[in-house]
Amino acid sequence: MIPLDHFLIVSALLFAIGLYATLTKKNTIMVLVGVELMINASVLNLVAFGRYDKVLFGGQVFALFVIVLAAASVAVALGIVLQVYRHFKSVDPTDFDSLKD
């Protein structure tokens, strides 16, 4: 059985990389990819801790819920990206500098 700290270290690394993508990327879709990486790191944590919960299965059930919610958020966010691209003709987050005119 793999010890717990291995999973935790992998998820910490993935979370840090996702945060870097979210902070620096010049394309909104890559920012979304960074957010997804962070969500996946947290799902890895949930699943790793869920191994110690044979009775309630809380970790695995909520890992499934988190995956579903991440899919919903990606669908909505990509819809917003498409609308914003139609309006600003750009997907660079630094170009989005005005609300509805």
């Binding site: 499934l64 995956i67 899919a71 990606v74 990206v81």
Partner: peptide
């Protein structure tokens, strides 16, 4: 981590759904 169903859901939802959606949004924008 002994979560085989979560792994399958990950493959189906992320690889089959989210990533294709991202590629489409990228190509459209």
């Amino acid at each position: 981590a002994l979560a085989d169903f979560v792994a399958l859901a990950q493959v189906i939802i992320y690889v089959g759904g989210v990533l294709v959606l991202m590629l489409f949004a990228f190509m459209l924008s």
